[in-house]
């Protein structure tokens, strides 16, 4: 069962590679492209640590094969901040509000929240909690994360999300 070729854009850069079809997008990003900011917690769709943007939509990269991303535009946590290393509004809010402790879940939260606030710049509290339901955090107890989303929503309303 041979390898197949894929061409995609990752964080704005065109990439081409050959992969075994069974390689998930998460493993492809981490192992072939060395983009290890995308974390793997459960590898079966439950924890959200592996969330990336594919053509703008937040998806679980452990539930997608790299071959399925052929032709797509992928944004990982490495592509969320500005190219000079500055933090995005969502990243700053997580830092300001103690939205992380060990940081393992954080890339998935930041990517998910970035997509959520782009689509819902005026979220209510229940909407925020619902949007966060697909990402698990073992450390923070979530309150700091909810606060971070509220702070970042202000930036989203001003159009300063990224």
């Amino acid at each position: 069962m041979g390898e197949v070729s894929v061409k995609l854009t990752v964080n704005g850069q065109p990439r081409a590679a050959t992969v075994e079809p069974r390689v998930t997008l998460a493993d492809f990003l981490r192992e072939q492209l060395q983009l290890t900011g995308t974390h793997l917690g459960c590898e079966h769709g439950v924890c959200g640590a592996c969330t990336v943007l594919v053509d703008g939509a937040a998806v679980r990269s452990c539930l997608m094969f790299a071959v399925q991303a052929d032709g797509a535009e992928v944004t990982t946590i490495e592509g969320i901040g500005s190219p000079d290393g500055g933090l995005s509004a969502v990243q700053s809010a997580f830092r300001d509000c103690h939205g992380l402790q060990c940081g393992f879940c954080t890339p998935g939260f930041v990517v998910s929240v970035t997509a959520f606030l782009r689509d819902h710049p005026n979220p209510t509290d229940p909407e925020i909690r619902e949007a966060l339901s697909g990402n698990l955090c073992r450390c923070t107890g979530y309150q700091g994360i909810v606060n971070a989303v509220q702070q970042a929503a202000g930036a989203a309303r001003r159009g300063e999300l990224r």
């Binding site: 959200g48 998806v59 959520f116 697909g134």
Partner: peptide, 9 residues
């Protein structure tokens, strides 16, 4: 159904 990240695929 699940979470918004599930529904996007």
């Amino acid at each position: 159904i699940g979470h918004f990240q599930i529904r996007s695929r």
